[in-house]
Design a protein around this nucleic acid. Structure first.
Lengths: 98, 98
DNA sequence: CAAACCAGTTTGCGCTACCAACCATACTCT
DNA sequence: AGAGTATGGTTGGTAGCGCAAACTGGTTTG
């Protein structure tokens, strides 16, 4: 019982942050998304979204691909296997704690 | 589906913080606890625990009672109705999102 | 009496989050 | 060519967290 509570402290902080939790939850469902889609869904501003994406990439949880939609730049995001696993572990721990 | 994800952004930040989430989870189970019990269970240092408790009190989520165990000061904590409600709402939203 | 101890708070520091504003590129319109 | 627009990144300022160290008020120990 108390051990269960203690595991809250072991939650992955990279994923726990609400902004990033939204991103990871969205990416876990769609397999691939672009920057503007995420911005629209999360209602975050560009700067905040950009820095969260950098952090997730740095952690190895997402892969960032810069490409073009016609002639307009487009940033594509997709969850890596590692990211998917980290998210599932996060979900297990959180559900267990609540 | 997207609305579900967006609700992550509405999670109560006071409760979402892991240190405070542990405190609230513990208090929701025991009805009353003292400072040292919480420190032992959460493994937080005194300073961090103290500041989280202040924040929870400020939010109206816990009630802090300073008393004595013999001649040694003792700080008792218990979840208010408001705190219990906020915790339940947090749990509902988090479970729904995951 | 002085030194050590106990419960808890406050403070200083490094790190992170958030937002707004600005920047770099590249395209479009007139 | 010049103004405006769109994508996305970067920067500066403010606020919160986590830890360790210093501090407060009171008690015990030598």
């Amino acid at each position: 019982m108390n051990l269960k509570t203690r595991r809250i402290a072991e939650l992955d902080r990279v994923i726990h942050e609400p902004g990033r939790l939204m991103i990871v939850a969205l990416l876990s469902a769609v397999e691939q998304a672009d920057f503007l889609y995420l911005q629209h869904e999360t209602e975050m501003n560009k700067g905040t979204l950009s820095s969260h994406l950098s952090k997730l990439e740095e952690a190895g949880y997402i892969e960032v691909t810069k490409t073009y939609r016609g002639k307009i730049p487009q940033t594509l995001l997709h969850l890596t296997a590692q990211g998917r696993q980290a998210f599932q572990q996060y979900r297990r721990r959180m559900k267990e704690a609540l």
